[in-house]
Amino acid sequence: MITAEGLYKRYRKTVAVDRLTFEVRPGVVTGFLGPNGSGKSTTMRLMLGLDHGEGETRFDGERFTDIRRPMNKVGTLLEAKPFHPTRSARNHLRMLAAANGVGDKRVDEVMELVGLAAVKRKKPKGYSLGMAQRLGLAQALLGDPRILLLDEPTNGLDPHGIHWMRDMLKHLASEGRTIFVSSHLLSEMQLMADELVVIGRGNMLFNGDVDQFVREFTQSTVIVRSPSADALASALEGAGAEVVKGEDGELVVSGMEIGAVGHLAFTENVELSELSTRSASLEEAFMSATGASEEFVATEPIAPATEKTGGADHA
């Protein structure tokens, strides 16, 4: 169990993490979501005492900096390639293991577990990002900890690697471990996470289970197709529903239950070829929840000025 209370971090005038309080339960995978620059990594660094700020995080009741041999209790993966380029991967793990009373046998075990046994004596500078992430996970698992804190562990992994990571984390959670994993890959979170902590600009936006998040931040819509779509759209709007015409000619109706839409079509004597509901995805819920709290937003691409002027205006 991880208990974070009042986490707060300020860089000069910018508040990076603003009084975050949440719990991460054992036995489930908890996703940590937020747009770029929302403070996910800073929050994790605060939790581990790498950054100094306010608030307190307890891992099964203990602060991280108070834990003797912490890798045996909390496994972490924070950065993609934090390795000395000329120290072999195995020696990198042996070095960290030495600080935590972990033997060389376990080092070889975790290298085997993450699929790097064949390259364990190679230098990590030759590793791909995916291999580096696997080494990072090996590092996190070194002390066979009950708690895992992973920052974007699927970055750089190929589809097979992502599938492997997802299964691995779900398996570890099923053993009763506490898994806290940040990601911006929403589709991954939908498949992997049972619970979510969602932040935007350092503020808590949501803390609960995935389905509840989708329900809270999106509204289900009704999809209806009809040979008399225009007449039906007018009738629906007349009854107070919001109607948008889809790309394939379907009507996307919001603000009215599916039963009411069917009843209206019946009373208006309009033939229907489809009547269904569409649930929003996690991605839509995420966009809805974090839309106002994006830290770095790109503008729409614009045409070069020369095209607008026909390329003739070269002063």
């Binding site: 900096t65 912490p70 972490t76 924070l78 934090p82 600080a99």
Partner: peptide
């Protein structure tokens, strides 16, 4: 980072 998570 790994150093301080192994030896905080």
């Amino acid at each position: 980072q790994p150093t301080l998570t192994a030896l905080p």
